[in-house]
Each structure stands twice: as structure tokens, then as C-alpha cells.
Amino acid sequence: MKSIYKKYFLLLLIIICILFYYIFIVNHRPVEIVAIHQDENYSFVLVKNFPISKSNKIAWWIENKDSLARQYGIPLPAPYGGFSIVFFSISKGYKEKGKYDRLCFIDMKPPKNCIDKEKIFSVTYSKNRGTIFTVSSGEYKIESNNKIKKVN
């Protein structure tokens, strides 16, 4: 019987270590902004170590939007006020155009001026909808009570 308890204890210890790693290491790494590309009122931000959860992505944006404006001049709204900022993972670096689903930047010289489209987060603003946050699970908005609500 003791060997069964040892196996369960070891399994529990491994699970706790994985959770610790995720919560305290992966989710709290500083975000690294590698590059920003601008195309009119669209900003493309290439990042490493972006938060994983929806709420941490939105919290990161709220905490860093003023410094992004100061340091990088984004967002750059259109004359009507709308803007779009899309965050892409750049973990694999710039690539040549070759592959079908790559985003290429006109402000860089080819051949290595493209990235794989690993979209991880976006922030858009329009007068009709307000500020919308898009993640893989859908669109979200911050309500007046500071609660995050899914947009239908």
C-alpha cells in the first residue's frame, strides 16, 4: 500500500510544480516588444512572452497603453478616431514570404520581412463599439463597473 501512496504523492508533487511554473514563471515574464510596424491606423506589435490568459492580456494592455503611446506612438488613430492594434508572437523571427499564411511588412526590405500569423491579442476602437479586446475565445469589453464582459 505504501508504494501507491508514494506514486500519488509524486504525481501530486509534479502537478504542483507544473502549476507553480505556469502561475509564477510563465505568466509573470516581462513582455518583450521586438518591433512595431505601422500601416495607417493599423499597428502591428511583435512580442515575446505575452501573457497567456485573457484577463492578463487585457490587464497588460490597460497597464501599458500609456507607455506604448509615449514610446512608440501607438495607437495612431484614423481621422475618424478608430484604430486597431494587433499583437503577434514573433518567437520564430522574421521569415521569407514563401509560406501561404504570412504577414509581410512593406516598411522592411525583403526577403526576410514576413512573420507567421500567430495573432495573440488585438485592441480595436470605434465610436460605435468602444474599445474591444479580441483573444482566441472571442471579443471582450470592459464594462463601466470594470468587469470584463464577452461581446455577443
Rank of each mutant, 00 (worst) to 15 (best):
P111N: 08
S136V: 14
S91A: 10
K92Y: 14
F44A: 00
K117M: 09
N49R: 02
K65P: 05
S91V: 01
K99W: 12
N145G: 07
N49E: 09
D101C: 03
I25R: 13
C104N: 05
I58M: 07
I18E: 11
G81K: 14
S136P: 02
D101A: 12
Y140I: 06
L19W: 13
W61I: 08
K99R: 06
G98H: 07
E32D: 10
G93C: 03
V86Y: 05
K117R: 12
D107L: 05
I148T: 15
V26C: 03
L76W: 05
E63A: 12
F133E: 07
F87M: 03
E63V: 13
A35D: 11
R102D: 00
V45E: 07
N113M: 12
N41D: 09
W61K: 05
F24Q: 11
K95N: 09
Y42S: 13
N145M: 01
T124K: 13
V45C: 13
I115V: 08
L19C: 15
K95F: 15
I33H: 05
I90H: 08
F133A: 07
E96R: 13
S84T: 06
Y72T: 02
E139F: 00
S137Q: 09
D107W: 05
F44W: 01
S137A: 14
F121Q: 01
I62F: 04
G81C: 11
Y42P: 00
T134I: 09
K57N: 12
L76G: 04
V47S: 05
I85P: 00
G73E: 03
I52Y: 10
V86F: 02
F105W: 05
D39E: 15
Q71R: 14
S89I: 03
F24H: 11
S43I: 03
A35F: 08
K92V: 03
I148C: 07
N56T: 08
Y80D: 14
A59K: 15
I74G: 01
N49F: 07
G93I: 11
L103C: 10
F83R: 03
G93V: 10
S89D: 14
I52N: 09
D101H: 02
G93R: 11
Y80V: 05
K65E: 08
G98C: 07
W61G: 06
G138W: 13
K97F: 04
H28G: 05
K54H: 09
A35K: 06
I115R: 00
G130K: 07
G73C: 11
I90T: 04
A35P: 07
N27V: 06
Y22P: 00
P110H: 01
Q38A: 07
D116I: 01
I148E: 13
L76T: 02
F105P: 11
S126Y: 12
K127D: 14
F44E: 02
K147D: 08
E143M: 14
Q38V: 10
E118A: 06
N128W: 07
R102F: 11
S43P: 00
V34R: 09
P75R: 10
G93S: 10
G130R: 04
W60C: 05
S137T: 15
Y140A: 01
Y140L: 04
G130W: 05
K57R: 15
Y125A: 09
K97L: 08
T131I: 15
G73W: 04
